[in-house]
Design a protein around this nucleic acid. Structure first.
Lengths: 117, 117
DNA sequence: GACGTGTGCAACTCTTGAGATGCATCATTT
DNA sequence: AAATGATGCATCTCAAGAGTTGCACACGTC
């Protein structure tokens, strides 16, 4: 179940929730450094249990930030930058949207002040 | 205490943690629409109490996403897009960094395969 | 200076999520 | 098919965070 189909809103939601945890960000960094790794391998270079790592990987997978493929008896995970990239774009758009609205409010305030004179 | 001085790492951390909550994102949207508002006013158009709104505003303030100024006996909050913008840049940089590392790993894998032949 | 309204603080409840443990299961290897 | 090593699942604990309620304090107004 590698990433379910969802609207952009829920997508952003899950990515932000996934990135909110410091452990998951470290995990992503480690994964990016190795290219591909299993939950068991990752847990060895990590201060938490394999099951904890697996939970995080499941969450990251639901957010579309990682993918997994089965190779023999092991499941290898890899980073998937697309979801992160789209969320970055969303944030940038939101930031500029705020700026737009704020400048509008500012203009209105100035107009009201001129009116009051 | 409008946004403490911190390194870029902790900054990103607090922004992501702040944005992880859906209620806070709605709150930011509402704030951006009004330009400026008090915790009491915001709570009136919101399904939560004033204290709950205030808590969220405190967290958003710590993340640098809002500012507050005192006007008479009320405290008015406003959106501050700078922190969001810088976090968006951080995410985009991270995404491209992953891409870079992944392509390196891919090249190494191909080289190893040629070697094996 | 008294009254009303908005803000600030503290304690409490309740849910969520991180982490651990134990055991079952499934695929390779001999 | 037996043994080994990896994954998968269920349950438990514990701490953090969202939300509420109640009350004290501060600021403008009459």
């Amino acid at each position: 179940m590698t990433e379910a189909r969802r609207g952009p809103r829920e997508h952003v939601d899950s990515v932000l929730a996934a990135l909110a945890d410091p452990t998951r960000r470290q995990l992503l960094d480690l994964l990016a450094a190795r290219g591909e790794a299993t939950a068991t391998t990752l847990a060895e270079s990590f201060p938490v249990s394999r099951q904890a790592v697996l939970k995080h990987l499941t969450i990251l997978d639901a957010a579309g930030l990682v993918t997994n493929r089965r190779v023999g008896r092991e499941v290898r995970y890899a980073v998937r930058s697309a979801a992160l990239d789209s969320t970055a774009r969303w944030m940038a758009a939101l930031a500029s949207d705020w700026d737009r609205r704020l400048s509008v409010v500012k203009r209105l305030a100035e107009a009201a002040e001129r009116e009051a004179r």
